[in-house]
Design a protein around this nucleic acid. Structure first.
Lengths: 344, 344
DNA sequence: CTGAAAGCGCTTACAG
DNA sequence: CTGAAAGCGCTTACAG
């Protein structure tokens, strides 16, 4: 239809529709105050001309890009199922809410990543995944005045939006379950304690003991960094101490520990009952299946993206939002009652 | 320094530097033809003013966004270590080459994703990961005239850029190794045969038999979809056929099969020697460790991003580029020679 | 090597 | 409800 070359612009649509560019813009963006017949005509013309708005122009004029960023640690996603789960869930949520998603690898120096993001400019806001979130990040983002929401880890300050799983009580429930299964010497492998989720899970571990009137044997507290290898290493140190139960602060470490225990000839759950956290290994063909708290990744991602959009729109931060995990008891901690079978 | 509010613009930098906006632009972008002292002055001013170019404006003026897209299937990345590896490697490569990376989930309908990408507009080009690549994609992208490079799967047409791992010969080498370990009834679990990588690996399986003068028992060819669960299911069918070796077309299926074999009481590698492909499970604490071909993800990602940038710059497609995997022999296929120890 | 000027394609007050 | 116009902040021929 157009004699000119190059892509179809709003101007073309307006001209063919016989209205002004402004009217065409309003019609196409679903703004109020456009006569129905005009709106329909413009839409039809845009459709038939194959009009695609130029995003850069729109961004420049509106100051919005409809793109959000996700900062994840630059750890190989194969080794980081939590990061993989978050990435996937956020990608879905962003798509649902019609936002583009830029992946920003956290180089380990928050400063650089923040610079990178800001220099890029085309991001309206940013989601920072737990694994990368430390105080430094928070300060940098807040001082940079960029809309931000943290996922899975909350700093001490309360003027920042956070979506996280409920760590304390759910961990306590899991550990109480271990106690109720008869465990009396329960070990734990913590995450890096500079992270709030790691300390909350450790607190939950203590809380369960308190509630059941048991003392925590400090010797049975080992430390890891949430990686499978660190769980295996910590477990090696624990074997000699003969725990009869283990709560690992995430599934990866639990799996690492399970392999070590089994190689050492310890039966799971008979000799050592095992539980983890995150629900990231649910689909592995792990035997026995792992008792764990499944993080509701999809729900958390939707909440986080929604919150971020609100922040971008200028709404004030709503603070911390905790979402309950789904605890499932697997064969790794469940000691089947020995039922005396009647003779045939 | 500036009395006005709002972010610092190029105009501010130019004014303070005492040059024109054009000169400032050239200086900051490292273009030829700027007097060294001017360049230095502009840079210093930009620095001290905290100037950050507005990406949207730059995009609009230049027609470039310096953002590339990566299309990955909307499978949970936890279940898709190949996708996770590609995503991570591409994110790194893009960062190195100073490109932003947008994650585009493949909804399964190529049309929709392509539409989405194009509608977005702000992507200069797109990488399509193997797992999503079918003929439909290729046609759509080519007809949409968007720079594109496929990773890990090549269609029949040759006018499109592809970066892939060498499948045929490396698979043949692995299967020959199984034969050399004494296997005579080797089974295989293929990937989805509508994918070229799956058929190439099956061809490699046949090629090895041919070279060693062995017949392929067609009964021992089972089919999967590259998922761990499908490998397990296929293995269940194979157990009764008593193979003494198995080549699974990827590691996920190999792991699924390993668990099934072991549960069935078959020892690996003594009863069944096992091999996979991809190298995605290298870091799992799999016992015994899996013989496999490690895909050079980092190298492939760099090649793919580099190729894509060339395409964006208008260079003609260079076609198919194969990269050699690194085959490692693990305990899953290595039958240790029974060495008769001399009596003490 | 440098500057004035046009233009990238939108959105959005501002008047009607 | 609609249009004319300014402006978003850059880049890039085009003249000098």
């Amino acid at each position: 239809v157009t004699g000119r070359n190059g892509p179809v612009t709003l101007d073309d649509v307006a001209r063919v529709s016989g209205v002004s560019q402004a009217a065409a813009s309003r019609a196409l963006n679903g703004r109020k105050g456009v006569r129905p017949d005009v709106r329909e005509r413009v839409e039809r013309v845009a459709q038939s001309l194959g009009y695609r708005p130029n995003r850069a122009a729109r961004n420049l004029a509106s100051g919005r890009s409809a793109v959000i960023g996700l900062v994840i640690p630059s750890v190989d996603l194969r080794l980081d199922p939590y990061g993989a789960a978050v990435t996937h869930a956020v990608a879905r949520a962003a798509t649902e809410l019609d936002q583009g998603l830029m992946l920003v690898l956290d180089t380990g120096e928050p400063g650089r990543s923040v610079q990178h993001i800001l220099r890029d400019g085309l991001i309206d806001g940013v989601l920072v995944s737990a694994v990368a979130a430390g105080e430094a990040w928070v300060e940098q983002l807040l001082s940079a005045d960029l809309a931000a929401v943290l996922i899975g880890s909350h700093p001490t300050r309360t003027d920042v939006d956070v979506v996280d799983v409920e760590n304390l009580q759910s961990t306590a429930r899991i550990v109480e379950h271990l106690i109720d299964e008869g465990c009396r010497r329960i070990a734990t492998i913590t995450g890096p304690l500079e992270r709030v989720d790691a300390t909350h899970r450790l607190n939950g571990f203590r809380l369960a003991h308190e509630r059941r009137g048991l003392a925590v044997d400090e010797e049975l507290i080992a430390h890891g960094d949430f990686s499978r290898a660190s769980g295996a290493k910590a477990a090696e140190g624990l074997v000699a101490l003969r725990p009869d139960g283990l709560f690992a602060a995430n599934d990866e470490m639990a799996l690492g520990a399970m392999r070590v225990f089994q190689s050492a000839g310890l039966r799971v759950p008979e000799d050592v009952a095992l539980a983890g956290f995150d629900g990231t290994s649910a689909d592995e063909l792990v035997v026995p299946s792992l008792t764990t708290a499944h993080q509701p990744f999809a729900e958390m991602a939707r909440a986080a993206v929604g919150e971020l959009l609100a922040r971008i729109d200028g709404d004030p931060p709503t603070g911390l939002r905790l979402i309950e995990p789904h605890v499932t008891i697997g064969g790794s901690s469940q000691r089947v009652e020995e039922v005396s079978r009647p003779p045939p």
